[in-house]
Design a protein around this nucleic acid. Structure first.
Length: 530
RNA sequence: GGUGCUAUCGUCUAGUGGCCUAGGACAACGGCCUCUCACGCCGUAAACCCCGGUUCGAGUCCGGGUAGCACUACCA
């Protein structure tokens, strides 16, 4: 019988959610949605020593921001900052599932698939010192302190006495274990290279990842395990566990995703690379309460969630053809595991910026204006323009930025008159005759009515494309021509008066927004100063 | 060291035996447009890891080598 597709994202609350983890969550989500399946989120907090406060909230908030919706398990409640748990297979935090694991550990003990071991971490460390290639397995387990060498009575007596112990999986040597991976095909590993993995530790009364992961995936009816490539070497162990439990018939299918690599050099992308190269490695800014560190996030850097999704989706997956801009809906429709690359992808932050640019340019000006408002507030600008004007301003400069905060550097002169004038621009564009030109220009512009000042009309450019022409252009250009001043000379000087530098949109777009009064005020001011 | 995975422009990738003189995108460079800076448009440079084999024909299949990465914890 065909089971409903069900995938899980199972992060560990040990800090901010790494961008590679975000991609794993995304691929799981895309796969689930495409197959009309269920996306489950479970928290794997089986290492009590690595728990970081706030990490769980962070993970759920990040997924919520990105639009990766959770159907079952833990998730951010709609519109709030509260975590909610939905589903019949809970609890969804492994630290709350102790009794469940007890039962299954016991089952493995009873069926002789596992045994108690009393070797302390120090003893194991000492053993590794003596024998550098030491592995706790069929060859060495009879030299160690465990219920196999001590006898079950002695083992139970030690436990009763309060000795710390672990439960280890007893792996039969010399068997080729076959794992079928949806991305890589069949992978075969000999069981002799596997060690007798610790499944449970009495120290904190918690299982390890391997046991918890298998038990939970089984109980939660997971059909596909889509996770990072770092798990591939332990996949055979997981297969063996499914078999030991007698669950091989409902064992999920595996897909191991390629890793996200450093932009330069080789190796896994790490938090350090972000710090070193100056880009975020996390979706949201994170304040680590445990070590006091602060990590920058994509959201705070001005990224749109759609852009992050699009960028990440293409880092490891690509459809046939040349399409690069994908909405979440398109990704859901087109995603497929067999088009996921097998090799790791270097993290190309520059391309990430380009994706954000694409989404920024597509956004309606009114929406961008709303997003820009907080930046203005931050700059302590008293906004005197109506929203439509701010939208117009943003529209004039948006195609030259990648991020909303960058808008400010491109349009600040609309909000504040130049306090100083750029030296380089001055040198190149402010000529000896400029003061005279500007004085004459003031006289000319003073004679323009308010209506004419703001008047424009549709026309065509030399290529026959639709264009807008400002009436002011019709007044100033003939004047420049008549006086033979040179368009570049006059207009650049004019621009410096208004902007303070040789940059910005077309000058009549600027004068329109500034208005006649402010425009003339700025030119007069420049004449005083320069 | 052992085991596994991987291998096309600097980067992300298309390519599933002839359509490949290897396509697209980012970045770089040049030009056009132009009152400036951008955008945009046009263009340039840039890759099949190596060696064998299979085949009429290999980037594509096979073998070997090399390199890179991952794993090798009472972490996930």
């Amino acid at each position: 019988m065909e089971r409903q597709v069900k995938v899980r994202f199972a992060p560990s609350p040990t800090g901010a959610l790494h961008i590679g983890g975000v991609r794993t969550a995304l691929y799981n989500y895309l796969f689930a949605r495409q197959h009309k399946g269920v996306m489950l989120l479970r928290i794997e907090d089986t290492d009590s020593t690595r728990f970081v406060p706030g990490a769980e909230e962070y993970i759920l908030e990040a997924l919520d921001w990105l639009g990766i919706d959770i159907d079952e398990g833990l998730r951010m409640a709609k519109g709030g900052r509260e975590i909610e748990s939905v589903g019949e297979h809970g609890p969804y935090r492994q630290s709350e599932r102790r009794e469940i694991y007890h039962k299954y550990v016991q089952q493995l003990l009873d069926s002789n698939h596992a045994y108690y071991a009393f070797d302390t971490p120090e003893e194991l460390e000492a053993k590794r010192q003596q024998t550098p290639i030491f592995q706790y397995d069929a060859r060495t387990r009879m030299e160690m302190q465990n219920s196999l060498t001590l006898g079950m009575d002695e083992a139970l007596a030690r436990i009763a006495r309060g000795d710390k112990y672990v439960v280890r999986f007893r792996i039969e040597p010399n068997e080729d274990v076959h794992v079928y991976d949806l991305i890589r095909g069949e992978v075969v590993i000999n069981s002799s290279i596997l060690d007798d993995k610790v499944l449970y530790k009495s120290a904190d009364d918690l299982p390890t990842y391997h046991l918890a992961n298998i038990v939970d995936d089984h109980l939660m009816e997971i059909t596909h395990v889509i996770r990072g490539e770092e798990w591939l070497p332990s996949a055979p162990l997981h297969v063996l566990l499914y078999r030991a439990f007698g669950w091989q018939d409902t064992m999920p299918q595996f897909a191991h995703l390629p890793l996200l690599l450093k932009p330069d050099g080789n190796g896994k992308l790490s938090k350090r690379d972000g710090d070193r190269l100056g880009f975020p490695v996390f979706p949201l800014e994170f304040h680590n309460q445990k070590d006091g560190s602060v990590s920058s996030g994509y959201r705070e850097s001005g990224y749109f969630p759609e852009a992050v999704i699009n960028f990440l989706a293409l880092l490891g997956w690509h459809n046939t053809g040349d399409q690069e801009i994908y909405s979440m809906q398109e990704l859901i429709e087109q995603f497929s595991l067999d088009r996921v690359s097998k090799s790791g992808a270097k993290f190309d932050y520059e391309k990430g910026k380009w994706f954000n640019h694409q989404y920024l340019v597509q956004k309606p000006n009114a929406e961008l204006a709303e997003l820009f408002l907080p930046i203005l507030k931050e700059k302590q600008i008293a906004v005197t323009y109506p929203m439509e004007t701010i939208a117009a301003i943003v529209g004039l400069v948006k195609d030259r930025v990648n991020f909303v905060p960058e808008l400010w550097e491109q349009c600040n002169f609309f909000f504040e008159a130049p306090a100083s004038y750029d030296e380089k621009s001055l040198q190149k564009r402010w000529k000896e005759d400029s003061p005279r030109h500007m004085t004459e220009l003031i006289a000319l512009l003073e004679g323009v009515s308010e209506a004419d000042w703001h008047h424009n009309y549709a026309t065509t450019d030399q290529n026959g494309n639709a264009a807008t022409r400002w009436h002011l252009d019709d007044i100033v250009m003939p004047w420049i021509a008549e006086k033979e001043y040179g368009v570049g000379i006059v207009m650049n000087a004019f621009r410096i008066c208004l902007v303070g530098a040789a940059r910005g949109p077309h000058i009549w777009d600027i004068t329109h927004i500034l208005g006649k009064e402010e425009t003339l005020r700025r030119v007069r001011k420049a004449l005083e100063v320069l």
